[in-house]
Every structure is written in C-alpha cells, then in structure tokens.
Design a protein around this nucleic acid. Structure first.
Lengths: 241, 241
DNA sequence: CGGACAGTTGAGGCCTATCAATGGTGGTGG
DNA sequence: CCACCACCATTGATAGGCCTCAACTGTCCG
C-alpha cells in the first residue's frame, strides 16, 4: 500500500501543488530540474511521508515512481524471519521505483520526513519514449545505480566491519557534500547496520574505536571526520554518487 | 587492455566474421536475436577468449560492450590486497559493458571459453537513440540487472553460508534451465566463493553438508539437486533471471 | 516519574576465516 | 609409460571476528 500523509491537489499542475504553507519546498530548482523537467514534465503529485513511514511496500504493484524533493529514503528488503537489508539510501534529486518490473522488489521508507514527486510509471515511460535526452538521462541514472550497487556488493562481500563503517562515512560525506568535515547522519544505527550487513552493536563498537583512534568524532548522529586519510585507508574504495 | 585470442576480420560485416572453422558459432539464432538485432544491428566484431582470459580490465576505458554468444563470463573487482568480489556470472544472451560511465568499474573474464559479439558503445548508443524498442529492451535489461544486484546484496549482507550456497545453486539451476535436476557448474570453487563472499573452504564444507543431508549430490562441477524443497528453505529467495 | 527508545558497552559463544595437510586429476616431459 | 608437477577440491585444527544476549545510560515524552 501507498502511505501518503498529505497529497496536495493532484488535479492541478505543479504550480498549485506545493505544500499548504504556500512556500516552495526548500530545494534548489536545479535539483528538480536535473531530472525530467524538460519541455514536457510528466504530471506529478506531491507526496509527503513522515519518519519511518512506508512509501512503497515490498512487492507492491509498480504503478508509480518517485523523485525525492527533500529528505532521505531507504529501500528495504525484509526476510521472512525479520532479517533486513537496506539496498540504498536516497536523497534529494534521486529517483526511485522507475526500474521496477511488475512489482517493487524492495520497499521504500522515509528515513526523515520527505517530500516526493510521484509520477505514474506510464507517464514516465511515455516521456522517455518521446524525449531522447530524458532517455539518456535515465540510462545514466541506471548506470550509476548499477555501479553503486556493485560497489556495495564489494563492501558486503569482502570488507571487514571497520572498512564498512569507513566506506559508509566517506559515502555519506560525499553525498552531504557541504564541504564541512562534520556530517549529520539522517539515519539511526539500526539503519546503518542493515545497510552494511552488520549488527547495531558492531556499528557502535567500530564507531567507538574510530573515535578513540582520533579518526572521527561521534556525537549521536553528528560525525566529524578528523582524519580523512585514515578513513580512506580503512575503507578505500570508490564513492558512487 | 582487451585480450582477444582471435578476432576475425573486423572490417567485413558479421557474415564474414565467424570463427575460422567456417561454421557459425553454436548458438541458436533466437539467442542472438533477442538482443539488439532489429532492422539495424550495429556492427559487431566476433571475439573469443579462453578460460580465465581477461575480456575487459577493471578501469578500462569504456569503449566497447559485449553480447555473450556462448560460454560463461564473470565480472570481477580486485581490491589492492588481493581480495576479490565477483559481481555476476553472465551467460549466452547476456549483454555487459553497456552500462559503464567512463570506465568499466568491474573487469570481465572468461569462466569458460567464450564467444562474444563486441559492439562499440557509440554504435549501441546510436541504435538506442534511434530505435524506441531497443531502448525499451535496454531499460528492461537495466531493471533486471538492478534487481539481481539487490537480490545479491541481501545474500551478501544477511544470509548465512548455507543459505548463500543454496541460493546460488537455485540461481544456477534456474539459468541452466534444461529441466534436468543435474547442473554442471562452469565455474570452480574459487569463483563461487568470491561470488558469495565466502572462502573456498567454506563453500566446500557447506556443499559437503548439503550432500550428507541428501539435499544435493556433488561430483566435482556436477551438482544434482535431490531435494529442491530443502534447498528452497535454506536459500529462500527470488531468482532474477 | 515511569516507560519507551536509541545508543553504548560487556561477556561469551558461534560461525567463518585461516593455516595446513591430503587425495585426485590432468598435463608434461623424461 | 609413468614420474612429476600444478592445480583443484576436500577435510582437519585452530583462531578470530562478529553476533547474541544482557545491562546500563541518557533523552524524550506522556
């Protein structure tokens, strides 16, 4: 099922469908513009979700796809016995759900409160069929997701816990990319552990060790990268944005 | 670098470029036809590689992509200290290398002697731009690779060794798909372990245990699936073809 | 204030990796 | 033809890293 807390006037175009505050979502127009704006933007419905709310359920029919306007989303696979694997963390500007076949193989949940633009996959397909540039953009998005996925396979298959943590922090630092050395992680330790194939306890312990080493500073969700070189040695790999 | 043992007359079209035997590669026309044949098949060069030979080197410039005509290919990432992760095993009909950005993030090596059709990425891009149906096909290929990759992340991140083995055998059984209960694995134990994020020894031990359980039969590369239900319980997941 | 929850730390056990040895097989050359 | 070597697969012994279970702290909120 689709969980939407607010859904602003789906009938009227985009101009009318900003949140009730009347202000535009706080995201640079460039971010929206980078994906699928073009001359014929498909009809979008603004959707919001609260923290931990489900946006797409695992095995849902793949009727829609989503562009993140603001916030952080995780894609999730739950095994029958409760084991969980997070496929990726997605941020503003990221598109997800377009690549489903018949159903969504992973669910999608809000890590933070999120604002999304929802498109029907039919509309997106139509746009992609019509517009060569959009098609190219979508292929590039696919390439980047594939590359990021394989990078993550190396992490899950061959890296030790400390390397996973280091890689993760570098990845998040590259994404936040505000030039600062302090990053504020939007997700909790449980999300991190399910992304890295570890337990919460191991994540904590490794963070503590890195802190005692002087490599990072830890204060809850705020992580300061004190020694980027040391982190790179531990997690040496390629960050795929 | 590109390692090609034979490369038959790249200048003359496809008709001239079959191996020196004069016979066509032994692959059903349907297999070739499924991908990118259409009215304007891009120029292809037939390439062959022997067992363990490198087809694409990790970090190679992404100038070409490949369609497997026959044989088995592995995509490989090597870490600096020698740890290895295999991204996927590819078989006849599979296309790889098309999704590279500037360079190939994974190398590609022949698991068995392989025959490939090599296209320039430029030609492929051009074809995709021109032909809407081909573009759709490529999007579906991308979707399947993404889905398979995420499935593999669940395996690497959250499954125990016995589950990984079980999932792997079911995956290979689904691919070989000759309806028989005995599959002949083209890859050795080292390849399997680097695909599953395990060691060779663990792969062996788990295979032995499954054999003692009566779940499978093992005779070198030949694996007989005796109790599919038990395998499914151990590796319960979705095989993405 | 009490309860829920996230985060952290400790103790112990299990699973897998590591190191080592053996058997089998295929290729090679004396 | 067979000794020899290389390589793969298997099995054993041991160690280590991560998981599990548990306790404790701090924060938020009713």
């Amino acid at each position: 099922m689709l969980a939407t807390t607010q859904e602003i006037d789906p009938r009227s175009g985009i101009a009318m469908s900003y949140p009730a505050t009347g202000r535009m979502p706080r995201v640079s127009p460039a971010v929206i513009g980078t994906s699928f704006l073009g001359p014929h933007e498909p009809r979008a419905t603004i959707v919001t979700a609260n923290r931990d709310e489900e946006i797409v359920a695992q095995d849902d029919d793949a009727t829609h796809c989503y562009l993140i306007v603001s916030g952080c989303v995780r894609t999730v696979r739950l095994m029958e016995d409760g084991r969980r694997q997070i496929g990726e963390f997605l941020f503003a500007g990221d598109l997800f759900g377009w690549e489903a076949l018949d159903t969504h193989d992973f669910g999608a949940e809000a890590v933070t409160p999120v604002t999304l633009r929802r498109y029907t996959r039919r509309d997106l397909e139509q746009l992609v069929d019509q517009d060569r540039d959009v098609a190219r953009q979508l292929r590039e998005i696919a390439s980047r997701r594939l590359r990021a996925g394989r990078e993550h396979m190396v992490l899950l298959g061959r890296k030790a816990a400390c390397e996973r943590i280091a890689s993760f922090l570098l990845e998040m630092a590259a994404r936040t990319a505000n030039g600062e050395q302090v990053i504020e992680l939007p997700m909790n330790r449980g999300d991190i552990s399910d992304y890295l194939g570890l337990t919460i306890e191991t994540v904590c312990r490794r963070l503590t060790r890195l802190r005692l080493d002087g490599t990072i500073g830890v204060e809850g969700a705020k992580i300061a990268i004190c020694n980027r070189h040391a982190l790179g040695l531990a997690g040496s790999d390629r960050v795929v944005h």
